[in-house]
Write a protein that binds this DNA or RNA. Structure first.
Lengths: 196, 196
DNA sequence: AGTTCTAGATACGTCAGCGTATCTTATTGA
DNA sequence: TCAATAAGATACGCTGACGTATCTAGAACT
């Protein structure tokens, strides 16, 4: 911090959480260290220990931080199918976040520290139910009469997100346009559209 | 090994791989160490180094070992639906294997060592296409006229396994009977049965 | 200006895990 | 029986990361 103004309070904490998140995305939870986060944040370890005495505490806080800040515009193409494809494409582009999130989940599972699961699990599962913006484009499609709301059970509603997430986790690569089209056209839409 | 007969050659290697696999299941790849495996196998580290100089080599070999040995009888209930439910139930019961497998995949992703992916990915993806025995019960169902083979695209065929796997990875818990029934009855069967 | 708080830097000690070297000894094959 | 091989045991040194203590100095408040 030679020559730089020292950060304090909320500003510092925000910078620490952002650095922690970026470290998670870069190295995963397995290799997530106080050293690494401190270096990334341009601070010293005791500064971090003061706030988060355990590594898992810091990781969980970083996830929460990410959740609060990861917002984006959802699509509005005029067609449910195209909205959904665009949405899935967007989620796919953010796969690094999913992988990082998931690495924390796995860390919690194997560590059995009981410090990670609980609310992280809840947060994870909440995010899993719907990709961001899904409810909005579903509502539009219902109003346009494109899909049958009676067919939209929780599990079917979760289907596009689930399949995309699965694909991302299995391949660790962006999901191809072809795969997205299959998920939407061959599986999801046949189950929820009225034309059947 | 005080008082025990020393293992040699293939016997020793088998025991090492079994210990390595069990260590993977117990602690995941993140905490997978030569020390841990050596202790579990009742041997010393140099014995392991001689065969697998890198930790990732040992993990990959353990996965291969597991794949060769993890076989089970597949169900034959007389009905495709019930066969499939039983199969998914079986896979769910073996979720620890999936989690261990996946922890190696994630390790490979973040380490970018280039030593893990390649064939491990291929093996992982191959297993992901079909749970064991899926082809057999599908063939029976086709012969019984229960499903329409024309509808069985690769992605739809992969659907039950994908959704089950996703569920397992998201919750880290056995998949409930209710969830299995939803996957089969509400999603998969409507897509592949002739009655629609 | 003086005081308080704490950010940032650094040092120290500990430990787990690795990699390597060395030695003893059991097993197998000639 | 002897020789070769390598399993098993142990010791040593190194590194990364952690946890803690201490100190300096910047920022905010009075």
């Amino acid at each position: 911090m030679a020559g730089e103004t020292r950060r304090r309070g909320a500003d510092l904490e925000e910078a620490l959480l952002e650095a922690a998140w970026q470290e998670l995305v870069a190295v995963g939870y397995a290799r997530f260290t106080f050293e690494g986060v401190a270096a990334r944040a341009g601070t010293s370890r005791p500064v971090i220990y003061r706030r988060w005495p355990q590594r898992s505490d810091l990781a969980v806080a970083a996830v929460r931080h990410f959740s609060r800040s990861d917002l984006f515009e959802w699509p509005d193409t005029g067609s449910f199918r195209d909205d959904l494809v665009a949405l899935l494409r967007e989620v796919s582009a953010r796969r690094l976040s999913l992988v990082a999130l998931f690495s924390v989940q796995m860390g919690g599972f194997f560590e059995e520290t009981g410090t990670t699961p609980g609310e992280l699990r809840d947060q994870f599962l909440a995010e899993r139910k719907r990709p961001f913006g899904f409810d909005v484009i579903v509502q539009r499609a219902i109003e346009r009469g494109e899909i049958d709301p009676e067919r939209l059970t929780p599990r079917i509603a979760a289907l596009p997100g689930d399949l995309l997430r699965h694909e991302l986790l299995m391949t660790m690569k962006p999901v191809s346009e072809e795969a997205i089209a299959e998920i939407v056209d061959d599986i999801f839409l046949p189950l929820v559209t009225k034309s059947r």
